[in-house]
Design a protein around this nucleic acid. Structure first.
Lengths: 235, 235
DNA sequence: CCAAAAGTGTTGCCGTTACACCCATGT
DNA sequence: ACATGGGTGTAACGGCAACACTTTTGG
């Protein structure tokens, strides 16, 4: 069995990272402009990297997060593993995909100066949790070509986010340390792709006991300022 | 990039299969007695196999299902990928885990004569969807030692099954083509590890429109025979 | 005092649960 | 006739959503 490690040609193992955020009421993903091989050059791809023999999968994702996205922490979750024979035209690569969630505030400072990175808009062509590939666009609505099977992978990410949104805390992972309830609602609406009722949303979030009012108010730009809330971290 | 396939030592990629079933009101899993390496010999493990360079992940699972479990079809779903450095004492192996569901009727005929296979009882030491490793036992309540991290993996399988049970059709995958509503309830109770109310269960299942009454009755052993139902397969 | 957005109280709907009952069958 | 498990009706409960309302701020 140990022999099969060296005797036969092995598939390569990579991790790919879908780093998601919400800004301006839109769901976003961090993509990287590829210029390396002719077959993928000019397209956009999720940041990733190979899994070396002395790295655990967790090590490998942490490394991608740090080296490619310039972040040292984020909510991370394994999505699934993609292993079709022809998914990478340059060779046989099995990719273990994770997604990460952060606030755009943190993400924008991390991206500062890195010109090959872009925070693309996500365009979901289906409703609810139906599923299927999605596409991405720049701020002006121009579609950006995705490399490999990353359109399918991102479809799975959106499906997972929509499915877990109301029985988990993933919605809160996209918020900065302090936020208003309207911020939280905007994030939920961006992920689900539909409007929610204000009173229902407020109560559901508060009844779950995961957030706490700070007593402070947002810096009012106009009209009544909303109260700032923060997460209660159960250790 | 293609060079990294050969220049550096690569982790090996395997698929492992958790073939689950319910019989006698207990959740079961198919395990294989390992005698190969000293470090794992004597223990029980999930059937698995390496992913060769010309096999997709789907090919690899199908092969394990056929060669190791002697089945040519079953409900299959990817669970996740496990890649800790020390999970296999014999070398660096990343394992993509799938679970499969079948009726015990089908499974028992497939296992016929294969003496290294055992259909072990699953012992869940936690309630609900809390999670954590589980253990397995033979019919007499004697614990069987699991190899590798398969105790943790099976914990994830049970958690996934419990989580998906009432918004998906996985419960029906464990039933033979024709079944009574009591059979279905028994399967749900075995997975959840708790009793359910009969009227509530009946109605929920029927209202979902996934099963149809056949008009026929079970072969009555005693008292009133129950009606036989079958799945409605949406193509 | 007005406009606009924050935040709350009330009501009604719907799905689920619990309990009690009736039905069908073999002995 | 009766014991036993199959199958159904009904009423109470609780979560969720819609609506209307009050409150607070800047101008």
């Amino acid at each position: 069995m140990q022999r099969s490690l060296s005797e036969f040609p092995q598939p390569a193992v990579a991790v790919d990272l879908a780093l998601m955020s919400v800004s301006g009421a839109r769901l976003k993903v961090l993509v990287l402009h590829r210029t390396d091989a002719e077959s993928v050059g000019g397209r956009w791809a999720l940041p990733g990297g190979f899994v070396h023999i002395d790295m655990s999968l967790d090590d490998a994702v942490a490394r991608v997060l740090r080296d490619k996205a310039n972040l040292d922490s984020a909510y991370l979750e394994q999505l699934g593993t993609f292993g079709a024979l022809d998914r990478d035209p340059r060779g046989r690569v099995i990719s273990v995909v994770y997604f990460a969630l952060t606030s755009t505030a943190k993400l924008r400072t991390a991206m500062d100066g890195k010109s090959s990175l872009k925070l693309a808009d996500i365009i979901v062509p289906w409703e609810g949790e139906q599923g299927g590939p999605i596409s991405i666009a720049n701020g002006q609505g121009i579609t950006l070509d995705l490399a490999f099977d990353h359109d399918v992978i991102l479809g799975h990410v959106v499906k997972r986010l929509r499915g877990k949104l109301d029985y988990s805390t993933i919605g809160l992972e996209l918020l900065p340390p302090r936020f208003t309830l309207r911020d939280a609602q905007e994030i939920h609406e961006a992920i689900l792709g539909r409007k929610l009722g204000k009173p229902a949303f407020r109560r559901k979030l508060l009844d779950r006991g995961l957030i706490r009012a700070t007593g402070e108010r947002e810096a009012a730009s106009a009209f009544r300022p909303a109260e700032l809330y923060e997460r209660i971290d159960r250790h």
